[in-house]
Lab assay of single mutants.
Amino acid sequence: TGEEYIAVGDSTAQQVGDLTFKKGEILLVIEKKPDGWWIAKDAKGNEGLVPRTYLEPYS
């Protein structure tokens, strides 16, 4: 379980453990880390770190 967020920009994984996503994708945020990198899952079930500045709450 988690909260749904929509990507407001494209982000390409810079290192192992990062999640690549495109603008408009809905991501499920699993954990919000205080350093600004959140753990999220995409629609295909891929999981990784995403920069919170690229996400907005999805409603």
Rank of each mutant, 00 (worst) to 15 (best):
T1C: 14
T1L: 13
G2V: 10
E3D: 09
E3Q: 11
E4L: 15
E4I: 14
E4M: 15
E4F: 15
Y5D: 00
Y5L: 01
I6Q: 06
A7W: 07
A7E: 01
V8F: 04
V8G: 04
V8I: 14
G9S: 15
G9A: 15
G9K: 15
D10C: 08
D10S: 10
D10Q: 05
D10V: 04
S11K: 14
S11T: 07
S11D: 03
S11L: 15
S11C: 15
S11V: 15
T12G: 09
T12W: 11
A13E: 09
A13N: 10
A13Y: 08
A13L: 08
A13C: 12
Q14A: 12
Q15N: 14
V16Q: 11
V16C: 12
V16Y: 11
V16E: 13
V16F: 13
G17R: 05
G17M: 06
D18L: 14
D18A: 14
L19F: 05
L19S: 01
L19D: 01
T20I: 11
T20L: 08
T20D: 09
F21W: 04
F21K: 01
K22H: 09
K23Y: 06
K23S: 06
K23E: 06
K23R: 10
K23N: 05
G24M: 02
G24C: 07
G24H: 04
E25R: 00
E25Y: 04
L27D: 01
L27A: 00
L27Q: 01
L27F: 05
L27V: 06
L28T: 10
L28I: 12
L28Q: 07
L28H: 08
L28Y: 11
L28D: 03
V29Y: 00
V29G: 00
V29E: 00
I30E: 02
I30G: 02
E31T: 09
E31I: 10
E31G: 08
E31M: 12
K32E: 04
K32S: 03
P34N: 12
D35E: 05
D35G: 12
G36W: 03
W37R: 12
W37T: 10
W37F: 12
W38G: 02
W38T: 01
W38H: 02
W38N: 00
I39E: 03
I39V: 14
I39R: 10
I39A: 05
A40P: 00
K41R: 15
K41F: 06
K41W: 05
K41C: 08
D42F: 01
D42Q: 02
D42N: 11
A43G: 10
A43Q: 10
A43R: 11
K44F: 14
K44Q: 12
K44A: 13
K44I: 08
K44L: 12
K44E: 11
G45L: 03
G45M: 04
G45W: 02
G45K: 02
G45V: 00
G45D: 04
N46F: 07
N46I: 08
E47V: 15
E47Y: 13
E47S: 10
E47W: 11
E47D: 04
G48F: 05
G48Y: 04
G48V: 03
V50A: 06
V50P: 02
P51E: 14
P51W: 14
P51F: 15
P51I: 08
R52F: 12
R52Y: 13
R52W: 11
R52I: 09
T53Q: 14
L55W: 01
L55H: 01
L55D: 03
E56T: 07
E56H: 07
P57T: 05
P57D: 05
Y58V: 12
Y58G: 05
S59R: 09
S59L: 13
S59E: 12
